[in-house]
Design a protein around this nucleic acid. Sequence first.
DNA 1: GCCAACGTTGGC
DNA 2: GCCAACGTTGGC
Length: 135
Amino acid sequence: MNYWLVKSEPFKYSWDTFVSLGRDHWDGVRNFQARNNLMAMKENDLVLFYHSNEGKEVVGIAKVVREHYPDPTIQEGSWVVVDLVPEEKLPKTVSLATIKKDPRLSDIALIKQSRLSVMPIKKEEFDIILSLAYA
DNA sequence: GCCAACGTTGGC
DNA sequence: GCCAACGTTGGC
């Protein structure tokens, strides 16, 4: 079991949009590193859903229900998508500021590689974020 | 709205 | 294959 974090601008695609759809493919990834991360996702892996730009906070947890397959929304290129379902909404969102303040999270890719849109999260980091969400 | 970080493109 | 120019992302 692995853990991940994906970013979305809520203006374009928010957690609520995702919940209303119920299940969706995660498309639009056009970065090789992010694509490699998508391709490493396995069914049942858990994914933190982060709102970038507006909000700047982790809002919910999604689950991978289908491993990577070719992006159905484009003809060209070798980009891939995965299918995700909402798993649960966090009772308390965890903001970027909170994450930055926590010394245990200083190595998190969210801070280290701020422009990456799909990134792996260590189990410890995932657990810490959840503990902050349920505090 | 600015700017830093960083990925991509294209000329050489 | 290097590197400058350019575009995009995302925090502030």
